[in-house]
Computed example of a mutant assay.
Amino acid sequence: MKVIEIGSIGPGPFCAMMLADLGADIIRVDRVAGAELVGPSADFRTEVLNRGRRSVGIDLKDAAGRELVLGLVERADALIEGFRPGVAERLGIGPQECSERNPRLVYGRMTGFGQEGPLARTVGHDLNYVAQSGVLSLIGRAGQPPTPPLSLVGDFGGGGMVLALGILAALWETRRSGAGQVIDAAMCDGAALLGAAFHGFARTGAWNPARGTNLVDSGAPFYDVYLTADERWIAVAALEPRFYAELLAVLGFDAASLPEQHDRSQWPRLKELFADAIRARTRDEWVEAARGRDACLTAVLDVEEAAEDEHNRARGGFVEVDGLTQPAPAPRFSRTPARVDSPPPLPGEHTRSALADWGVSQDAVASLVEAGVLSSISEPTPSSADADRLEP
């Protein structure tokens, strides 16, 4: 599968990373100068979301650069862009222009609020989209404000992963119809979809709108995290009666002396009893006490521990690429294993080789480099951020 990724940040790169992990040949189109990272990372070589594909530097505002991208579209199966609505059209690489060059192209569009609607052109970040979806209102502890769920629900789950699924589904349909189509992936839509079960619970009265009072939102004493004697944490998630009985046995409780598991009026008291008991031993002592038992008790590992954990190592859950440890591709395949083929690129690092592999002559590349339409650089040049590009 051949994919053009118009360089962006957050959900677009996550979508492209997933496809690259699964074997897609992806050209990432970065700016000819001034490509930037927005967020904690300041090093392109450690931007894990950009792994597994090659970068070319193209000036999309130059007619020759636009024509080059449209020429690549003729050879592509899919394109991913994360501009605000209307920007790709102004650049001349919108769905209509691309479809005219390749009617089978699947055109993936990643935005926060979608291609139309009152908020379509409103600037935002992950948290805004999750708030709009209704899901943010459900996340948090009792008496506390809603808790930002990192960028997992909007950018990555509701955004990049949903777009990747849409692209693959559209490509499957194209095999039958012979026609491409546009994928309108909005993070507010995807975040709502991730929360489908909880939207359903709320509308049928099965969910208390007060945060931190429900079964899986930290309300239940048997579904929460607890501090241990060594100032570390364990997670318990013993929902079913048989698992709950095992948890009580591990913690040293006599079930007959405790309130009934689902007596919500007694949950605060039961939570205090659990907290006091768990505070008496270290995290690893609790893990050892629960080993081999169905108590649903797990250590809360930090990122360093997760990479070195016995189970995760046995599964190959993390890989090291150029000295950078990172999560391995998922899911697992029995016959065609996914893998990380290359580290994150510098912007424009593969301009010559990637374009050659996609059928662009080296003479044409050399001419465009000389004209400033293409860059083939070894280090990024700092510049102000492009306000038209999606931000995490």
Rank of each mutant, 00 (worst) to 15 (best):
F44V: 02
D30K: 09
A306C: 08
R121T: 13
A78V: 01
A245N: 06
L247G: 05
I167A: 04
S55V: 05
V162L: 15
A235I: 11
L127T: 06
E272C: 11
A186R: 00
W358I: 00
E100H: 14
V365K: 01
M18E: 04
P347V: 03
R176Y: 11
A170P: 03
R269P: 00
G143N: 07
D59A: 14
P343V: 12
D62S: 14
V182Y: 01
G34A: 09
A210D: 13
R279V: 04
P329G: 09
S367M: 10
I26G: 02
V236H: 05
E349S: 09
L127Q: 10
G359T: 07
E240M: 03
R335Q: 12
C296M: 07
D217G: 06
G108V: 04
R90Q: 10
A120M: 08
D21P: 08
Q96C: 07
A387L: 14
P331R: 09
L49M: 12
S353G: 08
L163P: 01
D263F: 09
G112M: 04
P259H: 12
L301C: 03
R28G: 08
R281D: 11
G359Y: 04
A42C: 12
Y107R: 11
A356E: 15
A338R: 06
P221L: 09
R90D: 05
F253N: 13
K271W: 03
R332Q: 13
V32P: 11
P209A: 07
I377M: 14
S133G: 09
F318I: 03
I27D: 02
R264E: 14
L390S: 06
D184Q: 08
G195T: 01
A229C: 03
L215N: 10
V153G: 00
E285M: 00
P347C: 05
A306W: 02
G359W: 06
R66H: 06
T46M: 08
T351N: 02
D43G: 10
N128W: 07
H262Y: 13
A164M: 00
A371W: 11
A330E: 00
G124N: 11
E370A: 15
E320L: 01
Q115E: 13
I93G: 00
M110T: 03
G7L: 00
I9T: 04
L171G: 04
A229S: 12
L258A: 05
L258Q: 10
D43Q: 09
H125A: 10
H125P: 11
D21V: 09
E89W: 02
L324P: 00
L324C: 07
A229Q: 13
R211S: 02
D184K: 09
P149I: 02
G219K: 06
P95M: 00
G82R: 06
G166H: 01
G190A: 06
M17D: 04
P118I: 02
V319W: 03
N214C: 12
V73F: 01
Q181C: 15
R54L: 02
A179K: 15
W172Y: 15
E47W: 12
D43N: 15
I377L: 15
P241C: 10
I234W: 02
V69C: 07
T111G: 11
T174S: 13
I4K: 05
A256E: 15
F222W: 14
E304R: 15
